[in-house]
Design a protein around this nucleic acid. Structure first.
Lengths: 338, 338
DNA sequence: GGTCAAATGGCAATCGATTGCCATTCCGCG
DNA sequence: CGCGGAATGGCAATCGATTGCCATTTGACC
C-alpha cells in the first residue's frame, strides 16, 4: 500500500504495451467503447494480474468526484440510528461509494465544524439524519443533500421519511379499540419533523376518533431519551388528570415513562397502557414488551442512499420526498381496558 | 464545493502576492519555520478571508496520506458496537482523521472485499473489531492495524481489549458470595478472543473458588445473539443437570437465555440468577435488569484510535497491547440463593 | 482503386498541494 | 568593506488518473 508496492496505470500500460490513456479507457465502463474489444479484454486481464487498484486520490483530483458521502447523525449510540446507517452504507456500497460518518450530539456548532470537514474532503453528497424543521443553511449547500428519518420544512430539500401520521393513527385506533378513552401523550421535540408530525397526528386523530376535542393531556419532551420520558411522565402524574393510556413519541421515551410510572406504583399494562414508536432493537425484549410502530429504518437508510445516487446522476431535478409505510406491532405494554 | 466556487492555494498566493509554495509552507505547521512570522500571519489571514480549504485529494496524491482510517465491524446494528465506533471517531477527529466504516456480517469473503475497497482508497490505517483469534492475513497487511475489543492470537498485531479474565472472575465471585454453587455457562464462540478468554476464565476461577473441578456445565454459542442464547439455554435444560446460576458470555446471550428459561417456567432471578457481559445500552432497562460486566466500549474505541495515531507517527515500533479495566454491575437478574 | 467516415490509440495538459533545490536577501562580524 | 551563513521565498517537478484533441488505421461503399 506504499509507494513502491502499488501498481499504477503506467505499470499496466507498460505490461500491455499501450498508452496509459488506452488503459484508462479500457478500465472505465463509460469509455470502454473507445477501445477495441480484444485489446480491452487483454488490458483488463493484465490489470487483474498486476492487481491494479486505481488511486482514488488521483482520480478525484482530476474528476472532482470523491465517491464519498458525508453522513451526519445526532449520535450513533442512539439505538435508532445504527440500522439507518447500515442501510445507507449498503446502498452506497452498491454504487462504489463509501460513507464518512460524524456525530453532532445535537450541537449546532459542532454540526457546522463537521460540515466544514466534509467540505474539505469534498464529499459528493450529504445524508443528514440530524436535520431540524428550520435549517436555513441547508438549501445553500453546494452539494446534493438528502435528509433521512427527519425532514426539513424547506421542501426544496429531498427527504426519505416514514409515515408518522399513519403510525400515530394506528396506535390511537388500537388503543381506542382496546377501550381506552383517556389517552395522555408524551410528545417529542417540536423542532424536529418527527416530534411535530407525530403530535399533530395525535391531536388530529384524537378528534376524528371522537375521544376528545379540547387541549390534549400532553407534555413535550426536549429530547428523545429515557430521562426525558421519566420527567414527562412525572409531570403528567403531577397534573392529576387521570389517563388509562399513554402515547409516547418514541420507544426511549416510553421506556423512561414506564419506569417512572412503576416508581409511582402504576403498573404497565395493568394500570396504564403505554406505546412507543420505532420498534428499536430490544423493544421486544423489554418487560413489558413494547407495543410500538415499526418503521423500516434500514430500508429508509437504503432509500436515502439510492435517492442521493439518483440525484447525483442526472442534472438537478425537482426535489423528491419518499414516505415509507409503517406498521403497528402490538405487544405486552398495551391491553384491553379493565 | 464545485470547481468554480472553491479557493485554491493559487488564489491565496495571488491575493497575498507570493508563490504558492510559500503559502503552502505558511499554512503547514511542520514547515511554518521556513516563512517569516509576519508573512506567515498575513498569509493565514488571507487564507481565512478567502475561506481556503485544502483539497484533500491533491494533498494525498502528493503525500500518500489520506488521513482516512478504515473501521471494520461485524455489524453496526449490534448494540455493542456503536459506542466503540463513537469512541474511534472522536479519537480520530482529534487528529484530523476520519473513519470509513464497513460491516462484514462475520462473512470472511465480504471482509476480503472490504479490505480491497479500503486499499483502493489508500486508508492510512485499519481498526478491526472483527478479528478472529486466527487471522493469518493480518500481519501481511501493508498498513498499521489495531484490533479493538477482540485480539488476534498473533501478538504482532496491536490491540486494545478489556480485561475478560477479571470480568468473569468478578461475576463468579459475586455469584459464589450469593451462595450459588451449581453454576452453568453459555460460552461464546471460541474462535473469538472474547469468547475464548471468558470461558477460560470461567473454568479457571471455578476451580480457584472451589465450586467444581470437573467438566463445567457449559454450552457453546456459535454467535453472540439472542437466538443463540435461547438455543443454548434450551440445551442446558435438556441436559437435566440442575443449576441455580447461569453465566452468559454476553448480554444478548443472557437476554435470550432468560426468555427461554421463562418459557420453561423458570423465573429469573427467583429460580435462576443470570449474568451478562458488556453492559450494553438498555441492559439496565430490561426486566429483570441485567447483572453484568461493564466494559468501557467508548474508551476502548478512543484508545484504539490513539494507539493507531501513535503507531503512524513514529517508525514501526514493537506492537502494543492495551488492556482496559472492567467493573461489575449488580442488578436484578442475580440474587441471594434461597 | 479511391474517398470518406468511423474506429482506434497516442499525446499532453490538467487537477491542486507538496517539497527538493536554488537564488536572493539580510545580518553579523572581522 | 567584505565574507559566510542563515533566513526567506520562488521554481518546477511530482503524485496518478482523466480526457480533449489529433493522427493513424480500418473498412465500407461507389
Amino acid at each position: 500500500m506504499n509507494r513502491r508496492s502499488r501498481t499504477t496505470l503506467k505499470d499496466v500500460a507498460r505490461a500491455v504495451g499501450v498508452n496509459v490513456s488506452t488503459v484508462s479507457r479500457a478500465l472505465n465502463p463509460d469509455s470502454r467503447h473507445r477501445v477495441s474489444g480484444a485489446l480491452s479484454k487483454k488490458i483488463r486481464k493484465a490489470s487483474a494480474r498486476l492487481k491494479y487498484l486505481p488511486n482514488a486520490a488521483a482520480s478525484s483530483l482530476r474528476t472532482l468526484r470523491t465517491r464519498t458521502i458525508g453522513v451526519i447523525v445526532p449520535d450513533i449510540a442512539d439505538p435508532a440510528y445504527p440500522p439507518i446507517i447500515r442501510g445507507i452504507e449498503d446502498g452506497l456500497a452498491a454504487h462504489g461509494y463509501v460513507a464518512i460518518l460524524a456525530n453532532t450530539d445535537g450541537d449546532a456548532r459542532r454540526q457546522q465544524r463537521i460540515v466544514e470537514t466534509m467540505r474539505a474532503r469534498a464529499v459528493d453528497g450529504l445524508i443528514l439524519a440530524t436535520v431540524a424543521r428550520a435549517e436555513p443553511a441547508l438549501a445553500r449547500l453546494a452539494v446534493p443533500v438528502v435528509t433521512v428519518v427527519r425532514a426539513s420544512d424547506d421542501e426544496r430539500v429531498s427527504s426519505v421519511v416514514h409515515n408518522e401520521e399513519d403510525g400515530i393513527r394506528r396506535i390511537l385506533t388500537h388503543l381506542v379499540t382496546c377501550g381506552h378513552r383517556e389517552i395522555a401523550a408524551i410528545a417529542g421535540p417540536q423542532a424536529l419533523s418527527t416530534g411535530y408530525r407525530r403530535y399533530r397526528s395525535f391531536t388530529l386523530h384524537r378528534k376524528l376518533l371522537g375521544i376528545g376535542n379540547g387541549k390534549p393531556n400532553a407534555v413535550f419532551a426536549s429530547a428523545f431519551n429515557e430521562t426525558e420520558g421519566e420527567r414527562c411522565a412525572e409531570e403528567l402524574l403531577a397534573r392529576g388528570h387521570p389517563f388509562t393510556a399513554l402515547v409516547c413519541a418514541n420507544d426511549r421515551l416510553a421506556v423512561g415513562a414506564i419506569a417512572a410510572l412503576r416508581r409511582h406504583g402504576l403498573r404497565c399494562p395493568d394500570d396504564v397502557s403505554v406505546t412507543g414508536y420505532n420498534d428499536m432493537p430490544l423493544a421486544d425484549r423489554l418487560s413489558p414488551a413494547l407495543t410500538t410502530v415499526r418503521v423500516q429504518h434500514q430500508k429508509g437508510g437504503l432509500e436515502s442512499a439510492e435517492l442521493l445516487m439518483e440525484m447525483m446522476r442526472g442534472p438537478a431535478g425537482p426535489p423528491r420526498h419518499v414516505v415509507l409505510p409503517v406498521e403497528i406491532v402490538v405487544r405486552g405494554s398495551t391491553r384491553q381496558i379493565r
